[in-house]
Design a protein around this nucleic acid. Structure first.
Lengths: 243, 243
DNA sequence: TTACACATGCTGTATAGACAACTATAGACA
DNA sequence: TGTCTATAGTTGTCTATACAGCATGTGTAA
């Protein structure tokens, strides 16, 4: 009596389905503890690596929460799940084309040189500050307003890191203590300040992306990106296969 | 000479970094072919499972494209990459709270009963059509306009599926042929139609989420969600840990 | 009582080996 | 020439085993 389905899926997919079913029908309640890997190995009759892979993938998708030395728990259904993944939208917006291109352009156009952005995220040579307002340009047309706030307590941390290893972007992906990200995307009419800086009329539609990152329980950074609604959209484009 | 970094990362993370470095510095060109797993095992001195995990995770993130029996290739830098993941935004928006709740509410409020939505995605009992316009309400206030187009050729496919197995949501996650998703989020002023249906003024800011799904090279569905900008935002909230 | 060491149970990582499934290619054959 | 077949190479999955790292409870000693 394995409890696994009979379809042709790989074993680890069947294990995932088994777990999701038990969560879905309330068998394993929210924040409840799952059987240990060893228990699942015994009851399902598969190897531990297979169980482990299934649980790891469900953890990546946000269905589970695992703590080494303690156990595996059912995550509450909302929020937490896709947060990290959504952060990729922002990455995509910022580095369309080559990796650091967009940011370099920005640097040449900064309106107030005194208010430098915290470059630790994308660039090494910059002096970090804890608050900045930046206008991004493209072909002499302002397209985006960016406001950044960085928790001063964390600035030192970034300065102490060694970002000269070349693979800055990916290094950060792996090693930063930024554990969670919150995103809010909204459509608001341009304020007087927005209109002036972006060369549009007041009340024109703007697309606002608000991003907040956390390191554990403390807020690390807050970013507000304001786009000219009539000209720009967020998102990602899919190119269908040629053949 | 392994080529792996000396930091304290797990081996599979080092392999990932190694691969990303080789992609980043142009050593392995776009659409180029990577060394086989066996080659990497030889040159890096780690086991094949470790190499495999690294390559699989990079594939999931969209950096690589793998074809069984052929090889591993460098994906073009963006687009394909995070598309699947981003689709979760839409899921979360639609089913905050319990799984099918949101959709049920919608059904009670449909303005034109003749233009039913294709329920195959969330509900079994509905008659599918290939095009529909829906107004979503909350507490007697219209909050969202939804326009759906479904490729008629695919309607039959969904009808033939067996969605009565209980785990509808997860079943679809695994088995639908929807291979790719394109999202565009934009801020637009309300058209006359939008204003009338959503009880707002013309030119008021609206948040528009456009979603297009593909099965291979053909478009499967097109959804347009129009939200009242002053009242709603897309995104996800993070709740910091209590302790 | 308090502090520390240890055992236990859990997840995380890594390996070696095996087989399955798929693709492309080369060669045999009609 | 065209078609089928065998084969080599590649990725996908699965197992059994081992060890590391972490958290918690327990028992011992101060």
């Amino acid at each position: 009596m394995t409890g696994l389905s009979n379809t042709a899926l790989p074993l680890y997919e069947k294990v995932k389905d088994f777990v999701l079913d038990n969560i879905g029908n309330g068998n394993w309640p929210q924040n409840g503890r799952l059987p240990s890997e060893h228990d699942l190995v015994s009851s399902l009759g598969v190897s531990r690596m297979t169980v482990h892979r299934a649980l790891r993938e469900l953890t990546d998708k946000g269905y589970l929460r695992r703590v080494q030395g303690v156990g595996t728990f059912v995550s509450p259904p909302r929020a937490q799940s896709t947060l990290i993944e959504i952060s990729n939208i922002v990455s995509e917006i910022k580095d369309r084309g080559s990796r650091h291109r967009a940011e370099v352009i920005v640097l040449e156009r900064i309106e107030k040189p005194d208010e430098m952005l915290l470059g630790a995220f994308e660039f090494t040579e910059l002096r970090p500050v804890d608050h900045s307002l930046i206008v991004h340009w493209e072909n002499d047309v302002p397209v985006q307003l960016e406001e950044r706030y960085v928790n001063p307590a964390l600035v030192k941390y970034y300065l102490d890191q060694d970002f000269t290893s070349g693979a800055t972007y990916d290094y950060l992906q792996h090693s930063t203590p930024l554990t969670e990200v919150e995103h809010l995307i909204s459509a608001i009419p341009a304020t007087e300040r927005d209109a002036k800086l972006l060369h549009i009329r007041e009340r024109d539609s703007c697309l606002v992306l608000n991003r907040k990152t956390w390191t554990g329980p403390t807020v690390a950074t807050v970013n507000t990106f304001t786009y000219v609604g009539s000209r720009y959209a967020l998102g990602s484009r899919y190119l269908p296969p040629a053949k």
